[in-house]
Design a protein around this nucleic acid. Sequence first.
DNA 1: CTATGTGAATTTATTCACAGCA
DNA 2: TGCTGTGAATAAATTCACATAG
Lengths: 207, 207
Amino acid sequence: MRYHKISDETIRRLPVYLRGLHVLAEQGRERISSRDLADFLGLNPWQIRKDFSYFGEFGTRGVGYEIKTLIRQINKILRLEAVNKAALVGVGNLGKAVLAYPGFKMYGFDIVAAFDVSAGKIGKKVKNIEIEDASRIASLKRRNIRLGIIAVPREAAQETADALVGAGVKGFLNFSPCHVTVPRKVKVITIDIAMDLARLPYYIPAN
Amino acid sequence: MRYHKISDETIRRLPVYLRGLHVLAEQGRERISSRDLADFLGLNPWQIRKDFSYFGEFGTRGVGYEIKTLIRQINKILRLEAVNKAALVGVGNLGKAVLAYPGFKMYGFDIVAAFDVSAGKIGKKVKNIEIEDASRIASLKRRNIRLGIIAVPREAAQETADALVGAGVKGFLNFSPCHVTVPRKVKVITIDIAMDLARLPYYIPAN
DNA sequence: CTATGTGAATTTATTCACAGCA
DNA sequence: TGCTGTGAATAAATTCACATAG
């Protein structure tokens, strides 16, 4: 294997592989071929082999890939080996759903703090996490929390992002439907569920 | 302008443009240049001009684009001109957040039905929508609902997808963390919020 | 004989650079 | 002069095809 910078598209697919591999591991499966994995994930075998080849040779010719090895390697590439602590800002409907979402654990995420501006929510507990005043976001720095999740109304998104960046947060998921400006070094991934729905009618025949 | 099949990447960006243009329109702005729009959205001007050029010439050289015209044209391309009715399956935490999410209205979506399997939920109302028994999904056919949103646990995702397809649903958002198999003609867009969070640590410097 | 790993070919997407219109 | 619209150039991603290892 030669050196390659792993492309963003490959990085985007790694969690997809990881998700599928975890399901297969739970089912007690130990090995899988690129073809079977492709069928399971709805992708194609070349893509999978090419992606895997970017970060090493883990398969056995004539046999396939060992699932545990793959999981370990992908976790390593994505830096998911240690637990990643994250903070949520905005405990509305979406924020609560995020707190309750069971899927983060598989990737080693732990949401350990939650903030809101509403006096009615501050001090209450949701999923065993006490909601703190959003003005205390700065405390994330000494708590060594480097990931954030923004689930506030659009108008408050930029100031929330600024506060998180000020608190030393290095990357966050932004559920607010707008672009937020951050320093070059900070990574933002924006999710807008309505936007994804919005391109569905395009793909549907007129009648 | 010559004929071009509009690429999937361009289609993916159209809702982003739409979202920004709506905000600008609300602010009372009437015209905008590709450069200013690019700054506002965190994209670059060439991309925007190229994308717009795929479906017509709407700008005025030396001036820019009229916001209302752009909104109308993008809505037309994405088939968002008429109201699109949608049905939700799975009224858990995420499902409730989806029902309460205000962002769908901008794109002309109206969630008009909700289903769940839990006896404790059936018959109750959430956001003015009565939760129906999931076994009644077939009724979507005569109600002429062609879009679905799946927010059920992974184990139930495939059977839910099958039920929706059986009820004539042509496309759906899948929030369940797995691939679902559907006929060629049906479009599925999968959103897994944990997967997006999972690629964040990769982009964050080790320390 | 099977399934990986990977250069090469192809396709697709982005960026550039500038002609042309207001 | 300012900004659009778009071919051409570049870059990136996907797909193929097959040599190679077990």
